[in-house]
Design a protein around this nucleic acid. Sequence first.
RNA 1: GCCUCGAUGGCGGAAUUGGUAGACGCGCUGGAUUCAAAAUCCAGUUUUCGCAAGGAAGUGUGGGUUCGAUUCCCACUCGAGGUACCA
Length: 994
Amino acid sequence: MEYNFRKIEADWQKYWAENQTFKAENPALSGVEGNSTKPKYYVLDMFPYPSGAGLHVGHPLGYIASDIYARYKRHKGFNVLHPQGYDSFGLPAEQYAIQTGQHPAITTEENIKTYRKQLDKIGFSFDWSREVRTSDPNYYKWTQWIFTQLFNSWYNKTTDKAEDISTLIAIFSSEGNSEVKAACDADIEKFSSEEWKNFSEEKQQKILLQYRLTFLSETEVNWCPGLGTVLANDEIVNGVSERGGHQVIRKKMMQWSTRITAYAQRLLDGLAKIDWPQPLKDSQTYWIGRSEGAMVSFDVIASETKQSHKIEVFTTRPDTIFGVSFMTLAPEHDLVSIITTPEQKETVEAYVKATAKRSELERMADVKTISGVFTGAYALHPFSGKKVPIWIGDYVLAGYGTGAVMAVPCGDQRDYDFAKHFNLEIPNIFEGIDISEGAYADKENSVITNSDFLNGLPYKKALKRIIHEIEQEGFGYGKVNYRMRDAVFSRQRYWGEPFPVYYKNGLPQMIDLKQLPIVLPEVEKYLPTEDGKPPLGNATIWAWDTIKLEVVSNQLIDNKTVFPLELNTMPGWAGSSSYFNRYMDPENTEEFVSKEAVNYWQDVDLYIGGSEHATGHLLYSRFWQKFLFDKGLVPVDEYAKKLINQGMITGTSAYVYRWEFGKGNDSEMAKKTIFVSKPIMERITKERSTIEHTDKKVISDQVDLLTFCDTNSSEKEWSSFTPIHADVSFVNASDELDIEAFKNWRTEYKDAEFILEDGKYICGREVEKMSKSKYNVVNPDQICEEYGADSLRMFEMFLGPLEQSKPWKTSGISGVLSFLKKLWKLYIVENKFSVSDEEPSKEEFKILHKTIKKVEEDIENFSFNTSVSTFMIAVNELTALKCNKRAILEPMAILLEPYAPHISEELWKNLRHTTSISAVDFPVFEPKYLVESMKEYPVSFNGKMRFKIALPLDISVKEIEDAVMAHEKTQEQLKGREPKKVIIVPGKIINIVG
RNA sequence: GCCUCGAUGGCGGAAUUGGUAGACGCGCUGGAUUCAAAAUCCAGUUUUCGCAAGGAAGUGUGGGUUCGAUUCCCACUCGAGGUACCA
């Protein structure tokens, strides 16, 4: 009986699908008795974007890990929710549509089919009955709905949560807005309740828009007129578009944003209660960028303008306020045009224009060039009363703080550089600090001087005192600032969620849940329209009829009852921000998720996915969860208790070396293509002289091309090697190239010549990211076909720690396959499946229980690589003992099931069980089998192990010492010396010093 | 620049609170089986000296703490990822 993995795996995959083995029940809904008494456990993977390239072996790594854990938890008696779905809106399908005209929905459907086929082959225990797809209208109905919920909410800072907009309207009607503490736009006009009531409906709506959690605002974007679209920062290279090389300008556009900044502090605080990797928490913390400081107002000294203006600045170092010698405004600052004096007007305008042309990215990349101009205006220092010149400079960013800084050149390097460059004053306010070389930014060790009432105070005291003074004098107030910006929520794309929004008199109106989803319209072209509108501008049936409550033809727009619909679509992260909740109740058509379902499943217990989502998906989804929590829709405000970032599996590329040589401009290569085996190539390049004088003959025996070496005019010679990727499938475990396969690969290599060594061509190897262009992609289907899914699963785990990135090398997989074969043989006697019911020996029990203990600990610690070794050791030991006993082999099959479920099921069936192994209880570890009476002590001399001595474990330290000292090898080591000290750690080690 | 992580044989990696460095697997070497190959099995495999017994060195570098350091502390080098005029 051979281990026929192909048949076994196909059979069990079919069995699981037919019997819905991994379907998770919602107890309250299903009425399935058994499950309601089980505790729940939710294991989630980050759902994939189904790309056209399909899966390579790197993709399933995290899925295998989570599947092992899910299967383990089932053995431990949990009702496990382990769903999977697709994040199926996205750019590649849209770009394919632009190129070919094929509807993205078709592309997506095809890709999903491929993905599903590939995933099924690996034997995951997903509950596919709960599958979600973000591009499915039945799913994005709820994405649209959450958007409307955000629109209908505001953030009340007093209660510190999101509330329905009606509570805000109630406050406005009763007392106006002066006392309202909300997360809202800056500079909202103040009004009384009377004024509110007298405002027009339109004005009221405009005001409310400034408070809503999703709102329209003018946002600066990278606009590319050539492509007619907005580009992300990484789509711009050197100031022009990556595709096409078109000019990119910064332009203000009306865009939807979501007010994630309202949750900045709670997003920060929440990190303390979730078990997520520290580096990931750190990057979220940094991204949120909380800084404490003060807002300070500086009066602009009125000149010809006659009007008084105030410049507000945010500073983290108000204690250095007496060091201010100038101020700098961002070129985009509103006051620039107002305060600039007539004499400076021309210079300033030219500067502003020049900076507007540069992309933000360019400005950030170019840190070294210092530029700026003087406005001609001065501000009044609030404490010293000195005149402070106001400059503009592009090192000040309009988007952070107030877009203006009080410059303290002695304490900030950028201010320092600016002051040096323009020859501005650099007053020193730090006691005993030399600032002739640069600014002094170490706040912990500074004492303030030359600063009036702050003189002699260290940082902390000075900070407290100055904030008090600022507030006392009415110059400003202490403030917490965040780096994080509100998230722009509009995309000028086709393949995304349409907004459930129409415009009445230019004001956005939400479409009611009852009419959702608003389905993506058909368009003829997926490109932006000629007049620069997003792709949905091409749709002809894209208007909202408020009477019929349906989408109708654009021709019917009368702006009375039929209105235009929003043309933007939602960003990629919209659909992924709450999908984990939807899995709990995916077929519910009435609610986003039912109370029963969400109260039962609560939250994700284990979430596995890549760290590249640290400041994207993983931040936005936490924000949405907190919002949904505020609205009472979910019971917890952090949705994932534990998160693990799996590492990347890189490829091991193979290289061949193409040799070109000649004299002067003359290239022999014009005639021939020669590939040189790596060791020879290295010898030629590294030890050229040796080659020419000694090894020449060896090589020239094979190929008559080394005339090159014979020439004496060495200064004219040249020779170079170009490494070229060879497909990894042509290269075996010993790095030998399959020359025939390589020749047949490409026509240009058909007549290639090879310089071999011992008849072999040895390739170079390099670890690189897996990618088509590097010919190092390994397809999991192929691995399953050749080695089986169980081998693939175990090998991926065996590669190394889950979180670590590690290179794939297909050759290694033979090790786990032969392990599985060896395991299989334990259950076979005389070519028949048979186990004995004999009582196992002490030794056999010890092997089993040692394995149970280790594997259980490993799974709990997500140390899957070490449990694969443990299995191998156990099978090696059991094989050595020729163990064939049911009492050992039955629990072994269960232990292995999370890792290699197919073979385990088959063994279980052959052990005469009639149900799936997947729900069987996990074997219980019993310490009694591991109790030892003897210990083989390592005996060290000065920390170096010299020999071992077997001693009983129950003897005293004194007895151990006597036994060791009496040992002949001890005396041999000491050579008559008296030991200075003997250290004995019972059960561990003996160390003799001397 | 800043933040984070990492560095152990030819390769992937192991060593749970400081206690036998190199488990397990790949690769390699030799052998058995075979007409041959595949498959399987056995032995060896950190480097170095030695026929061997045995010795010496050894976890990126340099220090330190300790009876004892891959593990803890300090300084540094290199690599990977993230982030960046954030006031």
